[in-house]
């Protein structure tokens, strides 16, 4: 029985999907625990949306096992759909009525829907409840999408690229709203190509490119970032830039101090930022061949 399911909210093993012979998802494994905020991070075309569509029962898969709330999304029942919320990347039309009329209508589809005032408060639409949908701004329109995604009190909410096209202020407001939902106990599965979005929201991030997982972990540990080597650079006696990647930057600098009198020219000590780690992972920035540590 789906309802008694107490395991992970999402369990995916060996998921594969091809479009015309080209793999969009190529052997994906995912486990998402109850209450987690999980981000699938990757560039456009990495397979994020395809994965979301398969997990929400909108697309068939070519291979692999998928369990969402203990059931196969490919055989979604009405009961299962009442427990899963989806907010699509593409704008999907809503009835051209007032915000409250639309929310109230959709609430009627669910067995234990949220109170309308609660939904409007959670999504920051309380003041716009009497506004016509056509009069909403882009950000408010997206909030309405989320309102319709959570009105049925879903146990898991899928957000597919929710803040694409937002200005920075609207994005921050949106993040605050997602945090509120997570605190409320909703498991959130988010896809995004914004690194800072994954960092701001996710308990765990999975970087995918070309349908494969490149790295998985907390935003702080992503791509071995917490253990990543630090780069020490300086200028040698010919004025040429030298660099060393090391786990012991302090020792490298001490060694340099012994071979230099006074200032070490052009000295920098740099630990990779999350962005550099990410760009390295998705191959957007090909890291130079890593020189092994050589004493200067």
């Amino acid at each position: 029985m789906e309802t008694e399911h107490r395991g992970p909210v999402v369990e995916v093993r060996g998921l594969r999907k091809e479009y015309g012979g080209r793999p969009a998802v190529d052997g994906l494994d995912l486990t998402i625990a109850r209450g987690e905020v999980f981000a699938l991070l990757g560039p456009n075309g990495a397979g994020k949306s395809t994965t979301t569509e398969i997990l929400t029962g909108f697309r068939t898969r070519d291979a692999g096992t998928v369990r969402v709330l203990g059931a196969d999304p490919g055989q979604a029942t009405r009961r299962w759909r009442s427990r899963v919320g989806v907010v699509w990347q593409n704008e999907t039309e809503v009835p051209q009525l007032t915000v409250s009329a639309v929310v109230r209508h959709f609430a009627g589809y669910y067995p234990r829907s949220r109170d309308m005032d609660e939904v409007l408060a959670l999504t920051g639409l309380a003041e716009r409840s009497d506004a016509l949908v056509a009069a909403l701004s882009g950000g408010q329109r997206r909030r309405l999408d989320v309102a319709l995604g959570i009105v049925g009190r879903p146990e898991v909410l899928f957000l597919d690229e929710p803040t694409t096209g937002f200005d920075p202020g609207a994005r921050r407001d949106f993040w605050r709203m997602v945090r509120g939902l997570a605190e409320d106990g909703t498991t959130i599965v988010l896809t995004t190509h914004y690194l800072e979005e994954a960092e701001a929201l996710a308990d765990r991030v999975c970087v995918i490119t070309e349908g494969r997982i490149r790295s998985e972990g907390t935003p702080a540990s992503l791509g071995g970032r917490s253990r990543a080597r630090t780069v020490v650079t300086w200028l040698d006696e010919n004025g040429e830039r030298r660099d060393v990647r090391t786990d012991e930057p302090t020792r490298v600098v001490r060694d340099l101090m012994e071979t230099h009198t006074g200032e070490i020219p052009g000295l920098t000590v740099h630990r990779p930022t999350l962005e550099e780690t990410y760009l390295g992972l998705i191959g957007a920035d090909t890291p130079t061949t890593e020189p092994t540590e050589v004493p200067a």
């Binding site: 909108f58 009405r78 759909r81 009442s82 699509w88 999907t92 039309e93 809503v94 959709f106 589809y109």
Partner: peptide, 17 residues
Amino acid sequence: LERDNGTLRRLRGTPMP
């Protein structure tokens, strides 16, 4: 039109029979 503009897609994601 409703198939094109995503109305049907949205409905399909709900428990509406």
